[in-house]
Design a protein around this nucleic acid. Structure first.
Lengths: 150, 150
DNA sequence: TTTTGTTTAGTGTTAAAACATTTAGGTTTG
DNA sequence: CAAACCTAAATGTTTTAACACTAAACAAAA
């Protein structure tokens, strides 16, 4: 559905403002959908984000700051999120050998299994967001978003 | 900067997944920028959203549910946000004549003034996000986002 | 009319975000 | 070396989000 419909906007809007609202609205819509998909697995979306980052850099781990710098939401409190995931057994924390201020965080086998379970549920659910977009359109969209942030 | 750079992503990603991450990242970036701009005015971004919705439908007011259905983030607790804005004098609440369950919310003069102050500060700051996009690109981006949600 | 169900707004509670601050370890410089 | 400074992680505190639930008013039907 078009944004104007979604927001029941009456008056016409300048294109740049429409884009701005559309980005915020689409992201909220998407995050809501992701949250719903993650719920049965007991994960929040920032937690999921961390697990995927760690999985991507496995078997090497990352420091807390390295994780933060790779997150979608840079205002996340990584220390507390990591502690939660450690308590649930999805990652491990080991002190850094050289610099004892740092902590190296690594995804555990249980964490990897959870990620693959989620992947599979998504595949089964078929609900892949953005499915209406062609490959070329997806690339164009990503490019325009990059340009938007410039 | 390109998304891969921002997220320090090493491995190549399928286009649709890249779009997904890009939408979430861009929205978080944008929301952070808006929050920073609103801070001096003592407004949060959902509060600002409500004031703009009410301003758009002034002089007629809207019910709490009508406001909610027009918000960017549909999970907002409009009752509490409205109460906050009422306490700060930026809007007014009057019970609906016919249906006493409803409350009609209207932006106040103070609320209108606040919006125009914010508008002006933005214009002065010059920091209009998406400034690098041409009119045509902005329209294309909005269209692709609409299609993404389909 | 009374019962049943529905809609609208508000509330209660828990968890998480936002933001500053602290603690501890490391680095640099006098 | 010691003092000042910087960096990484954790913590404290306040506000807000998330979610279910309640209360009141309306609507419909028996």
């Amino acid at each position: 559905m078009k944004l104007e419909m979604e927001l029941k906007s009456t008056k016409p809007m300048p294109a740049r403002q429409k884009v701005l609202l559309n980005i915020l609205f689409t992201a909220s819509w998407l995050d809501c959908s992701i949250t719903r998909q993650l719920r049965p697995f007991g994960l929040t979306s920032p937690q999921y984000n961390i697990l995927r980052i760690l999985n991507g850099s496995a078997p090497k781990g990352l420091s807390v700051l390295d994780i933060k710098s790779r997150m979608l939401d840079r205002s996340s409190n990584v220390s507390r999120l990591v502690e939660k995931l450690r308590l649930s057994g999805h990652l491990e924390r080991v002190p850094h050998g050289k610099d004892r201020r740092m902590v190296i965080v690594t995804i555990s086998e249980l964490g990897k299994k959870l990620l693959s379970d989620i992947e599979q549920a998504r595949f089964m659910g078929g609900g892949s967001a953005g499915g209406k977009l062609s490959e070329a359109e997806a690339m164009e969209l990503a490019h325009l978003l990059d340009k938007f942030r410039d």
